[in-house]
Computed example of a mutant assay.
Amino acid sequence: MKKLLLLVALVAFTINAKAQIETPQPSPASKLEQKVGLTDVTLEYSRPGVRGRTIFGDLVPYGKLWRAGANKNTTVTFSDDVTIAGKTVSAGSYAIFITPSKTSWDVFFYTDTNNWGTPQNWDESKVAAKATVETHEVPFSVETFTIDVNQITNNGAALEFIWEKTYTAVPFSVPTGEKVSAAIDRVMNGPGANDYYAAAVYYLEEGKDINQAKQWIDKALSLVETPRFWQYRKQALIYAEAGDKKGAIEAAKKSLEGAKKAGNADYVKMNTDSLKAWGGL
């Protein structure tokens, strides 16, 4: 009887759990992803509505910190360092807070994004940037609070805020020029040490042209000021596969020496075993 009652209770609980009703949120969540130049910008925020209320100066008081939306923190994420109000803002995620007045807004980019609403204790050291921007009245009413990324160029854009009859924008710049110049230099100067190393290791592991792998690993190590023990280890294995036992022993000894200095017991053992097998010890 007890087992039967337990089974009935379990079934009732399961039915009740599945019967939960989902209703629309009053301030629905929104996510916007936008490429600006070569930088990814992601906005995540909740969007309250006017619903017949007076917003700025009433629901959102002038002179008081506002969370720029509803529910959890409104956040913006930059994949690269950007510049806001003349200040470099490192790549990462930031909460957006606003102190509005009738003619301008102070917009803060705050490093702590884990608040529900505004921070209980405001920490000025967490302000990555502050932009003071003018507000403009629009000749129509926007029902749903909106943040967008507009005015897009190769080198920047603006975070635009619009709600009720108020509009403002915070411009920011992105490092497109620096990234493109670096890419051009990298390509025009030819492959780097990492490229040669990766290609050589791939050829070794896939059983491809081992002589080509040997050329690439030599080139890779020649471009490194101080090759590391794991790089010498790959060179030793490639040389051994290519039938160059002398070169393999020489590279393995360098790898062994470096591994001992680094205290890496695994590489010490691997190199010791290889040197024994190749007649180097």
Rank of each mutant, 00 (worst) to 15 (best):
M1A: 13
K2G: 11
L5A: 10
A9C: 13
A12N: 07
F13D: 00
T14M: 14
A19F: 01
A19Y: 03
T23E: 08
P24I: 00
P26W: 03
P26L: 04
S27D: 05
P28T: 04
T39E: 02
V41G: 06
V41K: 07
E44Y: 05
R53N: 03
R53C: 00
T54K: 14
I55D: 01
I55Y: 00
D58T: 11
Y62A: 03
L65F: 02
L65K: 04
A68M: 10
T74Q: 09
T75R: 08
T75G: 08
T77N: 05
T77W: 04
D80E: 09
D81A: 07
V89T: 09
A91L: 04
G92D: 12
G92V: 11
Y94K: 04
Y94T: 08
I96K: 06
F97E: 03
I98G: 01
I98V: 15
S101I: 00
D106W: 02
D106T: 04
D106V: 01
F108H: 12
F108D: 10
G117R: 01
T118M: 01
P119L: 02
K126E: 03
A128F: 02
A131G: 10
V133G: 11
T135E: 04
T135Y: 02
H136Q: 15
H136G: 00
F140N: 12
S141F: 00
E143W: 05
T144V: 12
F145G: 11
T146N: 11
I147N: 10
D148I: 06
Q151Y: 13
Q151L: 10
I152V: 15
A157C: 07
F161N: 07
T166D: 09
T166R: 13
Y167A: 09
T168R: 01
T168Q: 08
V174L: 04
V174N: 05
P175V: 08
P175Q: 05
K179R: 13
A183H: 06
D185I: 01
R186E: 12
M188W: 09
G190H: 08
G190E: 09
G190V: 07
P191Q: 05
Y197A: 10
A199K: 13
A200S: 14
V201G: 02
Y203G: 02
Y203P: 00
E206Y: 01
K208S: 14
K208C: 06
N211Q: 13
A213S: 09
A213N: 04
Q215M: 03
Q215R: 15
I217W: 00
K219C: 01
L221M: 07
L221S: 08
F229I: 11
F229H: 12
F229P: 06
W230D: 15
R233S: 09
K234S: 13
K234N: 14
K234M: 14
K234R: 09
A236W: 07
I238M: 04
A240L: 05
E241A: 15
G243V: 08
D244W: 10
K245T: 14
G247R: 00
G247S: 03
I249G: 05
I249P: 00
K253Q: 15
S255A: 14
S255F: 08
G258W: 09
G258L: 09
A262N: 13
D273I: 07
A277L: 13
W278T: 02
L281Q: 12
